[in-house]
Write a protein that binds this DNA or RNA. Structure first.
Lengths: 125, 125
DNA sequence: ACAACTTATATGACGCGTCATTGAATGACA
DNA sequence: TGTCATTCAATGACGCGTCATATAAGTTGT
């Protein structure tokens, strides 16, 4: 029934869960408190900030995160309403959207990233 | 700004997130499909099944999971409605609750655990 | 050029988790 | 014993993610 192997798997799993929740929670709370954005919003900002290629991005960003397409759409909604990101329609394919940080978005990302990295370091020791 | 250390931290973090989402998603879908319970419900069943001591448990279970007290309460609600678990009031301290698997709960947990461990093995390689 | 299919994003209903609060029982201490 | 603080659990409002769809644009084959 409960082989030692199973025990070890379960242990490993619980450890991952704890690390994940602790870290995600800490980052989320910190970003919310200081910048009024959640972890999810930050992750999108971070991905867009990292993107150098000028391709139509919504889709491609989706490949770099475990988020659903639907979730992404709503996160981008919030970021747009917050004035941190802009959607540009894409000339080649008018179904696609091109995302770009606004100045405010870029500024906020810069500051938030410092906090983000610091909390990662603190929690992933 | 983006030191190699930071890069590595972010990599590590993304890896944890991916593992977590992939694994949790797989287990959740499988349990939902075959037993009509989610991962969260299973985790509570699993904790209760593992508990040998007869202490008043709601509280103590809370210490073994990243779940909120409020979340636990609702999960237990669902498990109770599904007839898998029973709440008993605790004589020593009438604020506390004592949880116990029903026969159906024990049976379901036994089968679900096999699936759970199998999916852990598959995803945490 | 016209259907039928596929792809990119948006949206609405819904479920779950969280926060803040409540209710009830207990403890502490004068 | 009476008051005040503390602890355990439940609840309601709310936000976010998911699923299933909708909308719109592109693609393919004839």
């Amino acid at each position: 029934m409960a082989t030692p192997q199973d025990q070890q798997l379960v242990e490993q799993w619980r450890s991952i869960q704890n690390t994940y929740f602790r870290t995600a929670g800490a980052i989320d709370r910190a970003l919310e408190a200081r910048f009024s954005i959640g972890l999810t919003e930050f992750e999108i900002l971070d991905l867009v900030a990292d993107s150098t290629d000028a391709a139509c991005r919504m889709k491609q960003l989706g490949e770099r995160t475990p988020m659903t397409q639907s979730a992404m759409s709503k996160v981008v909604d919030r970021l747009e309403k917050a004035g941190l990101i802009a959607r540009h329609s894409c000339e080649d394919d008018r179904r696609s959207l091109f995302l770009e940080l606004t100045d405010a978005g870029r500024a906020l990302h810069g500051e938030a990233a410092v906090e983000h990295r610091a909390l990662l370091k603190e929690n992933l020791a």
